[in-house]
């Protein structure tokens, strides 16, 4: 080698064309403040939206949660943590949810990954968009309707009726844990597929060739490169689905026959049936906190997985 050690290249200082990781150079620092101000201005409408539709309701619910239920239902002002102390009364619902959310998200992932993989890396180009559309379009119709479709498919006039023709009588598919799991996988599949698809789609195909070139079998290329580099997408999809599942109540009610009680069901009942707003609010606050914890953990894992780069989850 003719050269001893690497000499920094002057062109590199512009942070330009050469490498994504080049250090920010001095001339850029001056504009950082201006850039931040600009960013703040651009984000102002979004910030306002967040305050009005997220922060204010959250504050209202927080206030409710330290109040008391009025005799006829609703809220009456108070400062008590009795509602929080009463949380164990919904322990079963919390427990069911804590099992449902990760198990449902995992089941969803197991189905979604191969689909996303096929779409991003195997599907013929001209089919890709069509297939993606087929996955996304049902999402535009109400989940209630689509879940109802499953009630008919799994119900006595659906698959069990077909099975009756071949002599399998009185099989019950609807209102079983399996039906709930199926409904969840079906309902949340696009939310899992899309982020994984995006991360796989962004994957530099040459990395796969490089891996093969270096002697890796297709399996170890998949494990060492493809899967590994799609993990941020997996984490995004997983945490998205998991957080939505924390509040899920429709699918368990419709496909599980209302026999399995999740925290979402508890919330609906507390607000709409027994009108115990303070207790419902305390549960809602707890649920939000759990979701935030889930997000933080997921973000940590994602960040670690993808090296130093940060990954935005939502």
């Amino acid at each position: 080698m003719s050269e001893t050690g690497y000499k920094p290249d002057p062109d590199n200082a512009t942070g330009g064309r050469k490498s994504a990781g080049s250090q920010p150079a001095f001339p850029m620092r001056r504009s950082i403040f201006r850039k931040n101000l600009m960013t703040a201005l651009l984000l102002a409408p979004a910030t306002l939206w967040l305050v009005v539709f997220l922060v204010l309701p959250f504050v209202a619910i927080a206030i409710f949660s330290v109040g008391e239920r009025a005799p006829e239902g609703g809220y009456q002002a108070a400062l008590t943590f009795a509602q929080y102390a009463n949380l164990p009364a919904r322990a079963t619902a919390f427990w069911n949810t804590m099992v449902l959310a990760p198990v449902g998200a995992l089941a969803c992932l197991l189905v979604a990954y191969p689909v996303a993989y096929y779409l991003a890396l195997r599907a013929p180009d001209r089919w890709r968009l069509i297939l993606l559309a087929l996955i996304v379009i049902p999402f535009w119709t109400s989940l209630l309707m689509r879940t109802y479709a499953w009630i008919y498919i799994l119900g006595g006039r659906g698959i069990p009726a077909l099975l009756a023709y071949v002599g399998i009588e009185d099989l019950r598919l609807i209102n079983t844990p399996g039906a709930v799991l199926l409904g969840i996988v079906y309902g949340y599949l696009p939310l899992m597929i899309l982020p994984i698809y995006v991360s796989l789609e962004r994957l530099d195909r040459r990395l796969l060739e490089a891996s093969a070139d270096l002697g890796a079998t297709p399996l170890s290329t998949f494990l060492g490169v493809t899967l590994r580099l799609s993990l941020p997408g997996v984490m995004t999809g997983f945490s998205l689905v998991m957080i939505l599942l924390l509040g899920e109540y429709l699918i368990p009610t419709l496909l599980g026959g209302g026999k399995v009680f999740f925290i979402g069901n508890a919330l609906v009942d507390l607000f709409l049936q027994s009108r115990n707003w303070p207790f419902g609010s305390a549960i809602a606050i707890t649920l939000v906190l759990v979701s935030v914890v889930v997000l933080i953990i997921a973000n940590r894992i994602s960040t670690r997985l993808s090296g130093a780069r940060r990954v935005d989850l939502i």
């Binding site: 239902g73 009364a89 619902a93 009680f261 069901n265 508890a266 507390l270 027994s274 115990n276």
Partner: peptide
């Protein structure tokens, strides 16, 4: 309609 006892009983039944 407004009895918390019956509401909680129902919740216990549904979550059992």
């Amino acid at each position: 309609l407004t009895d918390p006892g019956r509401a909680e009983l129902m919740a216990r039944f549904k979550s059992a």
